[in-house]
Design a protein around this nucleic acid. Sequence first.
DNA 1: CAAAATGTGGTTTTT
DNA 2: CCACATTTTG
Length: 791
Amino acid sequence: MDTLLSTLNSSQRAAVEYIDGAELVIAGAGSGKTRVLTYKIAYMLSMGLKPWSILALTFTNKAAREMKERIGSLVGPDAAHYLNMGTFHSVFLRILRAESEVIGLKRNFTIFDDADTKSLVNSIVKELKLDDKCYKPSSVLSRIGMAKNNLITPEAYAADGSLLERDHRSKMPKLCDIYRLYVQRCRIANAVDFDDMLMYTYMLFRNHPEVCKKYADRFKYILVDEYQDTNYAQQCILTLLTRNQNNKICVVGDDAQSIYAFRGANIDNILNFQNIYSDAKLFKLEQNYRSTQNIVNAANCLISHNQRQIQKTVYSENPQGDKVKVNVTYSDREEASVVCNEIKRLHRREGVEYGDCAILYRTNAQSRLFEDELRRENIPYRIYGGVSFYQRKEIKDIIAYFRMVANPDDEEALKRIINYPKRGIGATSVDKLIAASRQYNVSLWRVIDNPKAYVEGLSSATAKRIVAFHDMMQVYIDSSTTTDVYILGKRIIEETGLSQEIFADGSVDAKERRDNVEEFISGLHHFVDSKREEDYGDEVYISNFLQEVALVTDADKNNNDENSANRVSLMTIHASKGLEFNTVFIVGVEENIFPSPRACEFPRELEEERRLFYVAITRAEKHCFISCAKSRYQYGNMLFNEPSRFLRELDRNVVDVNGKLTTNRAEYEDNMFSSPYNRSMPTTRDPQRFRKIEPARVKSFTSRNPEYTQSGTRYPQASSSAASASPASAWQASPSAPQRLAVGMTIEHQRFGMGKVVKVEGYGENQKATVDFENAGTKTLLLKFARYNIK
DNA sequence: CAAAATGTGGTTTTT
DNA sequence: CCACATTTTG
């Protein structure tokens, strides 16, 4: 242990060795924060603390896993295995599961993800007959989320005048009603959302002191990483577990890197920590080991413009290094080109690997131009962010089946799959079922158990199909506690027709989806295997799988495989938190982008943007390039943004500026047409646009004018006999055909080509056929409209 | 039912 | 411009 400690500097060591009480560690960027945390835990273990009495809370699962590994390599894997380590959400979810009865949930409750909560809000808004223009799910959910993060129940919300007034002002006076219903629906569905995990934990501990005591007795020492990004609910839970119980707490963070206020994080938690824990000892880690002096100085210079912060002096004893370079370009395309050229130059002349470079931007939409340019230049790159694996439709469909098996009351899951794959339960029927579920205040699952009893005027054919669906799911539910998730999962995918749906479609587009499903199934296998190993041979059921999968995200994936090796990284600044790169490009540093326009109204939010910029700069080890463009396309039209105010805050002693930090449109236009870059660069954009002629408007006129576009080529279906000369008429107009169509026939479809009829159902208007096409996969056609010939 | 056309709206994001 | 939802069309 002593040799371990001797590798730390004096302040790091002091922070590690203090284990007598509340502790606040302010860890400047690149100051070895993770090292301090891991060594501290190792130190506590060496002092005789039991691993299971330590609780370490992190921001991401990945951080928890890595820390556990590092501690394992310090003190041996056995002790590390017994540490309680994870995100707030994963740790508290486990507790909620164990104590579910106390808070009135069934143990098998499921978790609503973003799509579920959005869909739930949409249906509530519709039910209350509110205007969905005013009540956009995103804004409704953000209000509900804020309420939950601040531990405000629907009742408290309805009683809070200032909240109501605010909702009134923003044209959402019924928000508290939506909130109340939202909570009610979640409970009926036996489901929790992400914010509930914190709020329910708080309620559990506050309302049931004996339960709180039980966990407080278990967690003698609590460590919290990234404390600057915790919210009020998290802080309150910690208070219940520590201050009132005399447990030790150590929080680590950097107020200058608090960048998640938009989702509830409260920087006051770290700023006021010593008010809550008056005896808390403060440690500051101020030596930066990551970056050159110039980079550290530039970052310090920037952040000094913030008022609300804890005083500290971050310094570096690394080489001075190059000055941070600021480059003003004329256009967004030029910016991309300049960045790529610089990457190529560094690669050729200074031996900087592609994998050492990162391009950081404020919003995901900015990645496009860089992507294009990197591809054109054959520079390998990797984009972080975007749609994650578990967000893909095909994967979510499978998981919806799993969720329903684990928790049949899960209404969002049920709605998703009751008619997918198609089983003849249309939207109208589903609406009736849902209405009945509201009317009788029972879950949808109860209703579909006996639909005729709840719903008037349901055709018996439909009722039969609904019951068939119910019974099919019931079989899976019955085997879900005896059959492991891999076996049952495969059965579900095959028997419900999901695999048909995905694998029958031979098109190129579907390839990726098929691959995803394959990957998912092999992931299931892997999950079962590794879980068995971990838990010494226990069976692994669907519920076990769901419990973990709900909290897994792409950011947790290890990106160290050869696939991502040595590629330029592209990501938002938010996603770059905690990472470091030899060379960093911070792009699009312009007013209206960075800071974003919404942030400019309030000083608090502006300070957060500045911290975000601080995070970006401090990712860099050796080289930091900042750029902004004087013109840029956004939403299809040209913008002329000023360079960001943050750039003017950077002292010229540490920053080299290439170009002027002011601009206006006239100046832009002068330069645009004289710049050699813009003349030599072939561009798809018509320079005429700069002269304010709107070619788009001309185009839209033609496409919106049916007489112009379509005269002579299209005829209404009803008069198709009159159109016998047109090419389309070579295809049989349907109405005469359906009676003659039967299973086993081969037809030639106008668009899909040759195919074999595998199913015919319905009568008259609604008759439809399922056809297995040679090249286009299996399709269901409504015969009223289909154009085909019988062969 | 499925594809095409039209309309709309648009930070950051992890759990 | 682009992704998504809704409407129209065959």
